[in-house]
Amino acid sequence: MSVVRILFFYFAFVILLSAFMGLRQRSPVKALLWILLLFVHIGGLYLLLNAEVLAFLQIIIYAGAILVLYLIMLLILDVREEERSMLYLKNWQSRIWAGLLVSFFFILGSLTFVNKHRGEHTLDKLKEVGPSKILGRLLFEDFTFPLIILAFLLLVPLLGIGLLFVKRRQDGSA
């Protein structure tokens, strides 16, 4: 087995394990810690895939910002351990259906894919110019319009913060 494969299997194992453990953990703060492990390891996986910028942006954005927001939310609302019961899938038929659905995705996703396309960004070219430069150029040149849309999307939470300041009426409705 080559080094790449060993690394890949390590990352894959930890990613799957921490996702599983995180979602079965009843204490929300510990669950978030497992998810933190998951996000950091996904960053490591991106390193293996020669996406250095993305790897660290993954840690900065997902682990350093989004997950912190969740954590602060948990601490502020004082969410304690939840009861062990299911919301959906309460009977065995629905569980089987859900399992079939997931395995359908699994088979569909991994078997029907044909890998023919070859782009222009070979590893040598990336090393020559610098991957972050090519990424930035591609982003701003070819995706200008999505970027503008994204700006509006990110504007929404900034405007939505005002919702937090709406005073409650006496009858309890917001």
């Binding site: 910002a65 989004i66 927001l69 602060i72 939310m73 502020i76 939470p157 913060i161 937090l164």
Partner: peptide, 10 residues
């Protein structure tokens, strides 16, 4: 703390 965290994410 929430407005700060949300602004930080954005």
């Amino acid at each position: 703390y929430i407005p700060i965290a949300i602004l930080f994410v954005v």
